[in-house]
Write a protein that binds this DNA or RNA. Structure first.
Lengths: 293, 293
DNA sequence: ATCATTAGCTGACTAAAGTCAGGTAATGCA
DNA sequence: TGCATTACCTGACTTTAGTCAGCTAATGAT
């Protein structure tokens, strides 16, 4: 069973990289090195900071610099310093660059059309559905969940998104001041933990753990970005938080949640949490859960 | 609808090549150029003729030669002339080469395992199924159907396979001498056509057309390899033969088939062929079909 | 026996990809 | 103000990938 799955994954990898790789090479690379074409693609219509490009394409700083100079010489891009921090430089397409990107887009569409053309309508529908599944699940597979300093910019950003969402979903809005605290000190070792889920180094979810008293912990700040819901990321964050709790020597974890967050409630129940009577007076809490680890 | 399909295909291509490409590069390429690793893979445990390697990997003859010399110097392979034709040389792994391939295999398994690990059992099942679908349908999409000289080695091979299959499926076996002819001259322009379906330049199916009398043609030698059945290749060969028939100025095409070939019958009926009374005395025919183009 | 063809090899090249050790300007911090 | 850090750049390299022309040996056809 597991063996068969591995054989399938390997066979898939080989055949798809081969079949689709040909596209990337021949279609996208219109008499231009592949790296340059990819760079144009990655800069995109809105432009992109050089540091961001370096991170996304995982390129050596010197190499990227050279590629940018080459595209600049060809009149396809412009690289200008940011106003706020003039060390950071931002690459943007010129009008010639836009045309080039249009052309790349066009070729991509052509390739996709050529791929689908020989298939019957039913086969087309089927392959499209299967591709969506594979892509979605690959995204899940490469999503990482890591311990993070709760004051880091990504962690802060997640919490901000979380608060914003609560504010729109709770009937009377949400004010973090009125809610029970989860300060940086409380949610980092040795008292707690803060986890960030990332896809392609972009934060897409978080979860925090703090110690209430010896052996008893509390889970806070469980959030998954709208784009990543329904993929089991919440479940993985929750499991990872429980692992952290065990490492901190906690035996029981608690959490409270609002009636408007139905998915969260369902997740907790599925994951072995049982409803208990109110253990605090959080003004936004409607349900209280507990689990013995 | 079509637009959405194209967007899906493109998004799939980007994400899969990125995610899976990393594997190919980092896992397979163990401190060795990718081309060499692929070559070891392709030579495999049974070894492989150099010409075959050239065809499969689509490499320049000189380049391949150099790669082989490099692997030979590393003691991983041996290249020896064939006994029957000493121009043709066959590459095989040495025991060190075997170990290397084992290692590559192991890394591949590891990669696949790592990919599946974060997924739940249900997700794993789903991605494996979707991967199979995508792979199968991509194979369909890149299958080519081309006009071919009926005496070419691939065409002959297909006909041979076809006869073999008939011999096992017909109750009393099959003797091509007793069957109605379809000689090379009859199944090539200007009288007819011979089509070969190929996947990765390997023949996987065929079909022939010959002119019986002005305006009237006959379809013969419809065969699809067992490994490629159920993918609509037969349908595509049939359509392509009809296109050929139209180009040859034929208005009606006929064909006869045996009762044991149920899939074929079903295909003909689906494709607009209607059963008619026997128009010949082929000893193996049980059903006679006809279609006005 | 002669000659064309096939299979593979070698040498000489180019382009693309990637690495690494410095360098400079801008910024942040004590 | 001075100094460390950050963001990016340049120059000098290596490796990998790939192309092309011309060569040799084996084979097949006549």
């Amino acid at each position: 069973m597991q063996d068969e799955a591995i054989v399938t994954v390997r066979s898939f990898s080989r055949s798809v990289t081969q079949r689709v790789g040909i596209f990337t090479d021949r279609f996208l690379g219109r008499d231009r090195p592949l790296a340059e074409a990819r760079l144009i693609y990655e800069i995109g219509r809105e432009g992109c900071d050089v540091r961001e490009l370096r991170a996304r394409l995982d390129l050596d700083s010197g190499y990227l610099s050279r590629l940018l100079r080459s595209l600049e010489r060809q009149g396809l891009i412009e690289v200008v310093p940011q106003q706020t921090d003039r060390r950071i430089r931002r690459a943007g397409l010129t009008s010639a660059g836009y045309r080039e990107l249009d052309e790349l887009d066009h070729r991509g569409d052509e390739f996709a059309g050529a791929l689908l053309a020989p298939l019957s309508a039913a086969q087309r529908e089927r392959i499209v559905g299967a591709m969506q599944d594979v892509e979605r699940l690959l995204n899940v597979a490469v999503t990482t969940i890591d311990l993070e300093h709760p004051a880091s910019s990504d962690a802060q950003w997640c919490v901000e998104q979380y608060f914003k969402e609560l504010d729109t979903r709770f009937e009377g809005g949400f004010d973090s001041e009125q809610s029970i605290s989860a300060d940086p000190q409380e949610t980092m070792p040795p008292c707690g933990a803060f986890l960030v889920a990332r896809l392609d180094s972009r934060a897409i979810g978080c979860g925090a753990l703090k110690t209430l008293q010896p052996g008893l912990g509390s889970i806070k700040r469980m959030w998954v970005s709208r784009s990543a819901r329904g993929l089991g990321i919440g479940r993985r964050i929750l499991s990872a938080l429980e692992d952290q709790a065990l490492e901190l020597g906690l035996e029981v974890v608690r959490l409270e949640t609002n009636r408007s967050l139905e998915e969260a409630q369902a997740l907790y129940r599925r994951h072995g949490y049982t409803e208990v009577t109110a253990f605090n007076d959080d003004p936004y809490a409607d349900f209280w859960f507990e689990k013995r680890l």
